[in-house]
Design a protein around this nucleic acid. Structure first.
Lengths: 203, 203, 203, 203
DNA sequence: TATGAATGAGTATTCATTCAT
DNA sequence: TATGAATGAATACTCATTCAT
């Protein structure tokens, strides 16, 4: 998530907008969007409150920007990774393990996306057809591909199940994330899920 | 306000607390918890704002009460219904279709439970082990029963998948709920999900 | 201005809206509308800040309410007083002396009306045809009456001069009001103005 | 920004301070002093926000500078013009028509002077004895001259009426200025006013 | 001089909660 | 119990002003 992972100190400061978004992600994940104040975000980002308004129209816009930026990132990562394998089963496996890994590596972000974004039906309605829909369609495409190739059952409706599968994966990831004492690894989860869905889907 | 002063306490109009919870459910579902005011709830419940505080400690408590009350109801419904069938496959089918039906019949409530409640990490953490965990365990019990009876695969971890399956079902329900133009019936969803999971799980 | 001039202590508190308007008038006159805070007004009115919003939509509305209320009062006073005399010359005299007296007796109010209201062209445009226009028309009516009766010159345009005369009177009043050391009485002013205008107008 | 680096200081484009004042006049007239931002002014003046602070101490100082500069200009114009005629009646006529013309030719400036400047009691108090007083004294001098020469009535107090006459003229000008559809010309106003005051004043 | 990004103090407004009736 | 007027803490957002370049 941190684009400034290289240790070039002097040039460091990643771009103020990014710094603010990172800070906001952390703050929102910890306290929830509505319980976070702009002052909180500013403090963590080490900027003045007013500075935030130079980069984002308002508090909502900040949340939306986080969403859109990370969705772009997620979609790009997933699309790219999935392209490395051929058959739909492996693609689905890849998707599952990658999504879990992304959640694991960006826990705050994942939490914000999962929890905070849903709270506003408005957001959901607006973005269902947007970036979020794009991400869901990654799953849908895999399902359709599998169906066309005859490896997935014909009676599976990609349009219906795309979100179900995404939801199952994401829900599991979050469950794991919020679990205070990890009782199993995310890798184990990935296997369980893959096993479940593939067996459920394959002809 | 009460001109008929006789002490018919347990009268026709449902308990005021219930009226308030129903109103709150409707309001929270429409505008979101944080965008709803106590005044909004009071207006819909046709009580004075202060009255709400006679029945609930504060706004958060109102949300929690909705949650707990409905979870009790859901658990009771599901448990009872599931008891009518014997084998685990049918139980899972029942759970899936029943949960979807409950969502369909209580859309506002479902939305509040799914969306509004999650926005607070606190709630999630606190209630994972409470009523919500109880509901999740209905799924877990079905899974374990199936495993023990040898109808479900041994390599399926009930503890891991209980929330996944719940999540998949609930996510789908919400997806359907928020969909402006229903493109398919919830019954179709139930079948898809049952097909998917049973095939995925059964030996 | 104070409606609670009677000394009935217990019943005193005039009506909270009035108390707030009175306080606002004082505060706005002292510090100017834009340099006054709602907190200032609340403190002077001895109410909580939030209380102000129970009676007025917002800060602007408070200013407008002051304006409308006092215009009603002014118009009523002037109309009533003027009706007591017959010929237009006396009416004009009455108007002049009465307006000066009203300013003298309600200095804060006069200042707010004169200074604060003008600052917003919007207000002026909106109210030219409203309460303020009504007040101006008191002058216009006197002028027209005089013309019709042949006592005022025909070449005097009531529509043009109504505001001029009002302006002259009001400007003088304010000049006197803001003068730290009164060098002459308002009565002297009234006489000067009457002399000037009557001589200027009469046939 | 300046690519032609030769030191042509006093170049074509009017002094930057003037540009800023002109821009501010326009902006203040349109939106009001308190509703205008330095950013607004900077944009219209086509300078950076910071630049304004190289020429003016702060926002108030900008307003005051506009006031003082234009008062100097007004006084100079009026004084000069009035000197061209001899008798006090003509001088008063000249003053009236000239002031109206100045308003007509500098509507934004007139509005700022009349409306915006007054909103602050401070300004009024401070400037009564300053440039504004000087302008008022032009009227007073005419009145006194006329009295001394025996053409104006003795019972007219120049000190009292100077502002009244100024106020009447200015008020009328503003009335005309803010009138959306001009129903009469300013020349007509000038005649009405001259007629009124001269008849009112002359022996 | 000129810039405009950054600052952070300042404020209108909202709303959960209380309490006198 | 029930009311709803009153409270005042809390906060998003603005904007005059500064300052590193």
């Amino acid at each position: 998530m941190n684009t400034h992972s290289k240790s070039e100190k002097a040039e460091a400061k990643p771009d103020k907008a990014v710094r603010i978004k990172d800070a906001a992600t952390r703050v929102f994940a910890n306290k929830g969007f509505y319980n976070s104040t702009i002052a909180d975000v500013a403090k963590v980002a080490e900027v003045a409150e007013g500075t935030i308004y130079l980069y984002f129209k308002n508090k909502d816009d900040l949340l939306i920007s986080i969403f859109e930026g990370s969705m772009d990132f997620f979609i790009q990562q997933v699309t790219q990774e999935i392209a490395t394998v051929k058959n739909p089963e492996d693609k689905l496996k890849k998707f599952i393990s990658l999504h879990l890994r992304l959640v694991q590596e960006n826990p705050d972000l994942a939490q914000v996306l999962q929890i905070e974004l849903r709270q506003s039906t408005k957001f959901m309605k607006e973005y269902e057809g947007g970036k979020f829909g794009d991400y869901l369609n990654v799953v849908r495409n895999i399902l359709e591909e599998g169906r066309e190739q005859g490896v997935f059952r014909k009676d599976i409706e990609p349009r219906i199940l795309r979100r179900t599968i995404f939801g199952a994966v994401d829900e599991m990831a979050l469950d794991w994330l919020l679990m205070p004492k990890k009782k199993y690894t995310l890798e184990a989860c990935a296997e369980q899920l893959s096993a479940l869905f593939l067996k459920g889907i394959i002809n």
